[in-house]
Amino acid sequence: MSESTARSVALVLAVLAVACGKPVDPSGDEDATFTKASMAGAPAPTGEDRPLSADLAVEPVSMLVTFNRLKTADKLQEALNKKPGQFSHIDLDKDTTPDPLTVADRATKDGHAFEIRVRPTTGEFVVATMLFDQEWSYLGHYDGVMGGAASTTARPLPAAPLAGAAPPAPVVVATPPAVVPSAAPTQAAAAVAPTGAPAPGAPALAQPPAPAPGVAGAVQAVPPGSAQPAGAAPTKP
């Protein structure tokens, strides 16, 4: 950033610090959870319960929006993650690497709002909500959701799903195939079937008819002790 641009930024922020007031709460009083744009340079809070926004360079991020014309959530998100650690030192999953940032648009009747989020391996959490007027001049920020509670390092606020986001796909459980009983007889049933009797479930077999007496090919029975040889019965003329 050039020296002339830096002076312009300082002048704009100084004017905003004097001119713009805080948003009001439902009772009409100034919203105490809103931090307006300022060049005072107050020291950032410390401790385990400090706001997540204390580890975010809120003022430089606002300059990206106002002076670099990064006026969409996608463009601002890309710029914030181009060099990890340049604008944020938030490390919720404690892996010694700054967590990636995400940006979501938030509706506001007086201008524009960006919700800055952080996405460690444990989920997605709100860091701050930055407010701009209709002309994209920076007004200030909330240390969490707009008009709500602060998001701290000890109690980070989970990010709400974006409108229009597809719901998670349902878990499909495979149904085991149905077992069809076999029509074939079991080995146990076949084992207990008497010799010569058909097995249970098997079709009955027709018995061959007994040969008629005197028919060629019939076998002649020989009485015990007879000297007549056994063999085919003689054919009648």
Score class of each variant (00 low, 15 high):
K94P: 04
T33M: 11
T33C: 09
G85K: 00
P43L: 15
D91Q: 07
L101D: 00
A57C: 10
L56E: 01
T66M: 11
T97M: 10
K83Q: 14
E59Q: 15
T35W: 03
P45T: 12
M39Q: 12
L101W: 01
M39H: 00
M63G: 08
F34E: 02
V61A: 01
L70T: 00
K94C: 09
A32Y: 08
S27N: 11
G28V: 10
D99T: 08
D29A: 15
M63N: 06
K75I: 00
T97S: 14
A54V: 07
G47E: 08
D55H: 05
F67M: 10
N81L: 11
A54K: 04
F34T: 03
E59V: 13
L80H: 03
P98L: 12
G47P: 05
P51Q: 12
D49A: 15
N81A: 13
S38R: 11
K75Y: 01
E59R: 11
A57S: 15
K83E: 15
D74R: 13
M63T: 09
Q77A: 10
G28L: 07
S88A: 05
P43F: 10
L64S: 01
L52V: 04
L70W: 01
A42F: 11
H89K: 15
Q86T: 13
V61W: 03
D49K: 13
S53N: 13
M39V: 13
P84K: 04
D99L: 08
P60H: 09
G85N: 04
F87M: 04
S62D: 04
